[in-house]
């Protein structure tokens, strides 16, 4: 997949390129505001247009170009083949319908089933995601559930039609730490059971190390590094990835001061010229302010958009 997303003035996502294979878990990592969610919504066809506009590029799903699909056919893919789990289970569930209703509705929108069959499937889905007493819970309203249960219900909704790809947009960020782990395990178990691919969007590298088959690091709407977990965690080749790793607390760094990245992610409408990361980068050279960096290939699917580090042959 490859596309250029563009807002009215704000070029939120610009020049990213990634692939997700069956049964794979792909993580998109980056600070908040770097275009991860916009990317996900573009894949779902859910960007509000206007103001958003996809200026170029392709989104291929199962060999079909989604952007060329009539709106109606894209819609039938949503929820059936590609499903999404959102960040805030509280606001993402409709407060005036029971969760059972909301799950059943998804099933009935895509499959010619009887009410009763859909009801049975709903209850088994709720059971699958580990909600106890699913018959009773199905008739609860979202506000009657706890945060973790709500996210489980969201996941059940995403699973409703057995999708091939689930896009999970920071599904654990709004939850307590203990619940986060449960939801992660749940996703992993379901992935093994149902043979799905997962695109997992997060800013949390510790989550990534636990689940990812492949990692893409995004910065300011640009994919700056890609590789498998070993390559990213052991041999990072982009200063931004490196900075993210340095900011992560580990056993070895006990007692030391954690590194921070100076500055903030640029506003999409006012991106710096050249390499988007250069104002915050410690390895900046004059050329970085001028030229957009090419993806440097390190073999075995590992690449990073930083010619400086490539020339230096790794970090000193």
């Amino acid at each position: 997949m490859h596309f250029h997303g563009e807002g009215p003035v704000a070029r939120a996502v610009d020049g990213i390129d990634f692939q997700i294979h069956r049964r794979q878990t792909v993580c998109i990592v980056g600070e908040s505001g770097c275009g991860k969610t916009v990317t996900a919504l573009a894949v779902m066809g859910l960007l509000p247009m206007p103001p958003a506009r996809i200026a170029g590029g392709r989104i291929l799903f199962d060999g079909r170009s989604l952007l060329d699909l009539p709106a109606d056919q894209w819609r039938t893919l949503r929820g059936r083949r590609i499903a999404m789990v959102f960040q805030e289970p509280m606001t993402s569930l409709n407060p005036v319908f029971t969760i059972g209703d909301q799950i059943r509705e998804t099933i009935l929108a895509h499959e010619a089933l009887k009410e009763a069959q859909a009801r049975l499937r709903t209850i088994s889905l709720l059971n699958d995601v580990g909600i106890e007493d699913p018959e009773r819970r199905a008739s609860d309203y979202p506000h009657q559930l706890s945060g973790g249960q709500r996210q489980r219900a969201m996941i059940a909704m995403a699973l409703a039609c057995g999708p091939d790809l689930i896009i999970a947009d920071e599904p654990t960020t709004a939850l307590d730490v203990t619940v986060q782990a449960q939801i992660l395990h749940l996703l992993q178990r379901l992935q093994a059971d149902k043979q799905m691919a997962i695109q997992y969007i997060t800013h949390d590298l510790s989550v990534v190390s636990a689940i990812a088959d492949r990692i893409y690091v995004m910065y300011a709407g640009v994919m700056v590094e890609q590789g498998n977990p070993g390559q990213i965690f052991q041999q990072a080749r982009h200063p931004y990835t490196r900075a993210l790793l340095d900011a992560l607390p580990t056993k070895e760094k006990r007692g030391q001061r954690l590194a921070t990245i100076p500055g903030t992610v640029p506003h999409p409408a006012y991106k710096p010229s050249g390499c988007p990361f250069h104002p915050r980068c410690g390895f900046r050279e004059p050329a970085c302010e001028r030229d957009f960096p090419q993806m440097c290939d390190y073999g075995d699917g590992h690449g990073a958009r930083c010619p400086v580090i490539q020339r230096m042959g790794g970090f000193p």
Binding site: A220, Y270, P276, P279
Partner: peptide, 8 residues
């Protein structure tokens, strides 16, 4: 502001 990456 291109230098700072912040909106004016």
């Amino acid at each position: 502001d291109a230098a700072t990456g912040l909106p004016p």
